[in-house]
């Protein structure tokens, strides 16, 4: 059943808020193990597209498929809830503002969902927490609360929390945008490590250098459409569309 070329498939995604159309007929395939960056100005719909993949923002039209199963199936409420909760276990998400649970230690942040949803024993959960936190270099802080961690550390714990569900796909929604510049790199390093392990990832980002260094493909979105897509060497170095050039020019000037 597994089709590695069409591991994630977005077909004619469309979304409107009233009269405002934020996604206009977007289609996209991501192969297993591929890393795709989505760039674009704010309001371009890139976050909305990402959030549609796990149905945090429901599409008004179109389909999302993951590994041969439709994510946004049309089902009665109760059945749909069951289905989407199951699907979301396979889709990890990392947010701009971390969204760690402040009343739980790093350990509990990581183990809560596996314990509830996979019935892990305490011993297995502890092992899992140690494993995942070690992977993001946070093992030493396993019993710290989020308020005792820096932004970069919080984000690494948040990544460990998502990985603890053993997802098939990871979504990053501007994971480093809220961080102080000197903390960006530690998070990028973790993402690079995931890339080396061939995790399938879709990354909404403003970090062009990072996107260029880890991604297989870059999508430039503007006003709800994909303006240009291709390997980073083409999109960043030789964009074919004027809008892409303009965006990159402005963005790079702003970054200096």
């Amino acid at each position: 059943m597994t089709d590695t070329e069409h591991f994630v498939e977005i077909k004619h995604a469309q979304k409107s808020f009233g009269k405002l159309e934020v996604l206009k007929d977007i289609s996209l395939n991501v192969a297993r193990g591929q890393i795709v960056a989505i760039i674009g100005p704010s309001g371009s719909g890139k976050s909305t597209l990402l959030r549609a993949i796990n149905d945090l923002d429901a599409l008004t039209g179109g389909e999302i498929w993951l590994d041969g199963v439709q994510v946004n199936k049309n089902l009665p409420y109760r059945q749909y809830e069951k289905h989407i909760n199951q699907m979301r276990q396979d889709i990890g998400m990392v947010f701009q503002h971390f969204n760690l649970f402040p009343h739980m230690t790093a350990r509990d942040n990581v183990t809560m969902a596996p314990k509830l949803l996979k019935g892990l024993s305490k011993a297995d959960a502890d092992k899992l927490a140690e494993e995942q936190l070690d992977k993001v270099g946070m093992l030493e802080r396993i019993d710290y609360y989020p308020s005792q961690l820096s932004g970069g550390q919080k984000q690494r714990v948040a990544i460990a929390r998502a990985l603890a569900m053993k997802p098939k796909l990871m979504l990053f929604d501007e994971a480093t945008s809220a961080l102080d510049p000197e903390l960006v790199d530690e998070v990028n390093q973790v993402m690079k490590k995931l890339a080396e392990e061939h995790m399938t990832m879709i990354i909404v980002t403003h970090e062009m250098d990072f996107a260029a260094s880890v991604c297989d493909r870059v999508l430039f979105m503007d006003k709800g459409v994909v303006v240009e897509e291709g390997p980073p060497s083409v999109v960043f170095k030789n964009p074919t569309k004027e809008r892409t050039r303009e965006f990159l020019r402005k963005h790079l000037a702003g970054a200096k």
Partner: peptide
Amino acid sequence: GQREAARTLGLSRWQAFYNA
């Protein structure tokens, strides 16, 4: 974001409310 983080992990509405 707290609710979203919990739901994203696969928790149901009630689980997200009760635990997060």
